[in-house]
Simulated assay, not measured.
Amino acid sequence: MSALVRAGFADYRAARDAYDSVLTLAYDRAEAATNGALLNARGKAKGVDPATLFLGPAVRAYAYASPELVEHWEQHPRVTFTEFEQWWIREREAEYVAAIA
């Protein structure tokens, strides 16, 4: 495997690890803000894992989210991996530019 590919995989793993930390923080904050009321009745009836509301399509998340969680997301929006990845790349590029300036 080339050094370039190895570096790319390492960067991806670093971004995923950082995103996992963001998700954990988002879940913990939401759980505290909603007093644990993360799922609506439909989500509870289907046995949805509340943590999965922070992953995947927004349509699914909002379909099973409690009103309290929806309100929380209005102040603290869900962040998808794609959004996080774009932010993460911009941060790495800014660090690189600063390092060579």
Rank of each mutant, 00 (worst) to 15 (best):
residue 59 V to G: 05
residue 100 I to H: 06
residue 37 A to H: 06
residue 54 F to G: 00
residue 6 R to Q: 13
residue 47 G to M: 12
residue 9 F to S: 02
residue 23 L to K: 04
residue 72 H to G: 01
residue 96 Y to N: 05
residue 63 A to G: 08
residue 37 A to Y: 03
residue 84 F to L: 00
residue 53 L to R: 01
residue 70 V to Y: 01
residue 24 T to E: 15
residue 36 G to C: 09
residue 42 R to H: 13
residue 52 T to A: 07
residue 71 E to H: 10
residue 4 L to I: 15
residue 32 A to K: 11
residue 95 E to I: 04
residue 100 I to W: 06
residue 34 T to E: 07
residue 68 E to G: 10
residue 16 R to S: 07
residue 45 A to S: 15
residue 31 E to D: 11
residue 74 E to G: 11
residue 88 W to Q: 08
residue 6 R to Y: 04
residue 52 T to V: 15
residue 90 R to V: 10
residue 100 I to P: 07
residue 67 P to R: 08
residue 42 R to S: 14
residue 25 L to T: 05
residue 61 A to M: 03
residue 29 R to L: 15
residue 75 Q to T: 13
residue 61 A to H: 02
residue 43 G to S: 04
residue 1 M to H: 06
residue 77 P to Q: 05
residue 82 T to N: 14
residue 32 A to R: 15
residue 55 L to Q: 10
residue 64 Y to I: 06
residue 15 A to R: 01
residue 21 S to M: 12
residue 65 A to E: 01
residue 31 E to Y: 09
residue 80 T to E: 09
residue 9 F to Q: 11
residue 68 E to T: 02
residue 55 L to S: 06
residue 79 V to L: 09
residue 101 A to H: 07
residue 39 L to D: 00
residue 61 A to W: 00
residue 57 P to L: 11
residue 18 A to P: 01
residue 22 V to S: 02
residue 59 V to K: 10
residue 44 K to P: 00
residue 78 R to P: 06
residue 20 D to A: 08
residue 101 A to W: 07
residue 37 A to E: 09
residue 90 R to T: 15
residue 70 V to K: 05
residue 71 E to V: 14
residue 15 A to N: 07
residue 68 E to K: 05
residue 4 L to Q: 12
residue 25 L to K: 11
residue 6 R to I: 14
residue 95 E to T: 03
residue 5 V to C: 05
residue 47 G to P: 01
residue 34 T to P: 05
residue 36 G to W: 08
residue 10 A to H: 03
residue 80 T to Y: 00
residue 54 F to I: 03
residue 60 R to L: 11
residue 72 H to Y: 14
residue 69 L to E: 02
residue 32 A to G: 11
residue 9 F to A: 06
residue 40 N to A: 04
residue 68 E to M: 05
residue 82 T to A: 15
residue 54 F to M: 01
residue 42 R to G: 07
residue 90 R to S: 14
residue 78 R to G: 06
